[in-house]
Write a protein that binds this DNA or RNA. Structure first.
Lengths: 132, 132
DNA sequence: ATTAATGCAAACACTTTGCAATGGA
DNA sequence: TCCATTGCAAAGTGTTTGCATTAAT
């Protein structure tokens, strides 16, 4: 929550709960994931409020909406440029902080950002454990 | 259609229409896009049939489902490894055939494939034209 | 003749919207 | 006080499913 304190968000208890959950979160949760957790503490919480808050944060650039999952958005509070490692078996998404210098042959396209997705099998799943 | 002729698909007129439309298509169409086009020629065509065919092709590895668009899958008949250039204004997706050699620091994750997404503004939109 | 594919509608999953009630600033 | 936010429910998208009918092999 601290890192968001200077935002111009109206700090309702619901938003504080969401911000607290998101702070430093590396799980790339979906709206539903977030809802499930914060609803425990705030039983009146509605999914619409979660979406509302996520949208507000996204608009302020304090959150990144990932389109990695088909049909379900995942949210990433880590706004520094980074990439993702996606296990195709257990669907876990992990951060990759390596900086890749990717040069595009087509110079007439103004690239503002780039994102690398690595697909494969994570160590857990390789060992036959994984699969949620 | 020719390139799919050796697949084990039951070749119904509907599938032939879809395969014809997909052949060499560079537009990364959604299921709805495909439906709109093929339904002109086959008025009885149903969206479920489009999904059915897309799934069959995907399962056979003759088509790639892209998760670039939030909430709407896009399909790519180009199955050779390549990357994408996405205009954030007009949402156009263009292919990038450059081969990037991306080395991952984490060696315990078995990377099977990687995909680079470049976001930015395409030439058309830069010139103030774009925006569909 | 077999059996997969079609097409319709209904079901689903995720997200957005409308709006009266609430409560931060 | 004022106006953004909440929470509920309803509506909106995109996708999947069930099932009787149809048709490719």
């Amino acid at each position: 929550m601290k890192k968001y304190s200077n935002s111009h968000l109206r700090l309702t208890p619901q938003r504080i709960a969401i911000l607290d959950y998101l702070e430093g979160n590396k799980n790339h949760p979906s709206a539903e994931d977030i809802y499930r957790v914060v609803a425990k503490r705030y039983p009146t919480m509605s999914l619409a409020t979660v979406y509302n808050t996520l949208f507000a944060l996204e608009r302020r650039g304090q959150l990144v909406k990932l389109t990695i999952d088909q049909g379900k958005a995942r949210y990433d509070p880590n706004i520094s440029p980074h990439h993702h490692l996606i296990c195709t078996r257990c669907k876990t998404i992990e951060d990759v902080d390596t900086l890749y210098r990717l040069v595009l042959p087509d110079t007439s396209f103004e690239v503002t950002e780039s994102h690398v997705e690595f697909y494969g099998i994570c160590p857990k799943c390789s060992k036959g454990r994984g699969k949620t």
